[in-house]
Write a protein that binds this DNA or RNA. Structure first.
Lengths: 197, 197
DNA sequence: CATTTCACAATCCGATCGTATTGCAAAGGG
DNA sequence: CCCTTTGCAATACGATCGGATTGTGAAATG
């Protein structure tokens, strides 16, 4: 048998080149030749690892979702036994484009958003992702309630929706450049402070 | 002199056909021929009214922004002398994709978002739009404060940011289909209730 | 050492893209 | 009535697209 390469790794390399292109110029600019050039490989290689452009885009979106999940998990596992509201904050901050990696993730997310609206396979993944996030936020809020850190008027389910939407909206503002990371954190902390007793 | 037509009206017709295409298939699918077919006119007519595809896209984005501004204005002018917090609610609801027109607006907005990140002319318009909205929300909140409808812990500027981000996040959820109009209204009202005394 | 199989690279193909060019019908003003 | 100007339609053009096809070097098996 011939050369053995890690196909998953190669696909991921290609997907990340695709991200960089999508970030800079949008998904419209993601052609086979452009991705190949960005990755520094031949067009033939892309065709070897992906049956079509569509499959390549799908894989790139899935890979981005995996990375986001991993980032959230890392952020939550960061502190050993944090006060519950600190966990809520950490979780929400993980959703904001604060560094290079999360900015890439957020941009790729937005780039695929519209496409997802017309692509069942993608929209399912998006919906599942946000459902997972909503559940995680709810869980953290319930912990906070048990720890007595939550004000009386807070409804966990509703507040989780508010927080998820808030993080999404702040992300958009940050990507567009009309909100700095500091302002976003300030706004987030202002809101979180009002959840406490 | 020959036939006289309302050039602005023709451009708007074309822009709205472009929206319909962008909603269904994203901006990638917006080619001259596709827009011409959607509008039921010849490709030559598009070229007559727009110097390039780029200019056509720019005009379509601007036209969408105009419509949003007008919708917000209508919504605010709706009631003669509403209680200030009702004005805040009306304003935020105007940002949500609750009917066909606002859904179109929201979708077009998202479609142009990524493109705006790499297009100075567009990103300027986006930034100005959100600054205007932020100012309008702040003004409403100040009215509410003067009317004594606002709880003590509310900081007008910060809360305006929260509300704008919240509306943006809820819009995304509604577009993706994981939030119904009723759920979004519920979440919004839940949050607004916590702003009152 | 021959052979098979994988991992590409290179080239080709028809379709479609945005744009430029050309032609022409219709509608006032001279 | 002619002439100019506008509002398009039609077509031509080179570039680029996604995808198919073909060619080749390297490695493991027999």
């Amino acid at each position: 048998m011939p050369k053995i390469v890690d196909a998953g790794e190669r696909r991921r390399e290609i997907a990340e080149a695709l991200w960089r292109l999508a970030m800079r110029q949008g998904l419209e600019a993601v052609s086979l030749s452009a991705v190949a050039a960005e990755a520094g490989v031949s067009k033939g290689r892309l065709q070897h690892y992906f049956a079509s452009r569509e499959e390549m885009l799908l894989f790139a979106a899935g890979h981005a979702a995996d990375r986001l999940r991993e980032r959230v998990r890392r952020q939550l596992a960061g502190q050993a036994a944090p006060p519950p509201m600190a966990a809520v904050r950490a979780l929400l901050v993980a959703l904001l484009p604060v560094d290079e990696e999360s900015r890439t993730g957020a941009l790729v997310n937005v780039a695929f958003f519209i496409r997802a609206l017309a692509t069942p396979a993608l929209s399912g993944a998006f919906r599942q992702g946000s459902a997972e996030l909503l559940e995680t936020i709810s869980r953290c809020l319930r912990d906070a309630r048990q720890a007595g850190e939550l004000a009386a008027g807070i409804a966990v389910e509703q507040e989780a929706r508010v927080l998820l939407a808030l993080a999404g909206g702040l992300s958009s503002g940050m990507l567009m450049g009309d909100t700095s990371a500091e302002e976003a954190a300030e706004t987030l902390d202002y809101h979180l402070a009002r959840l406490r007793l």
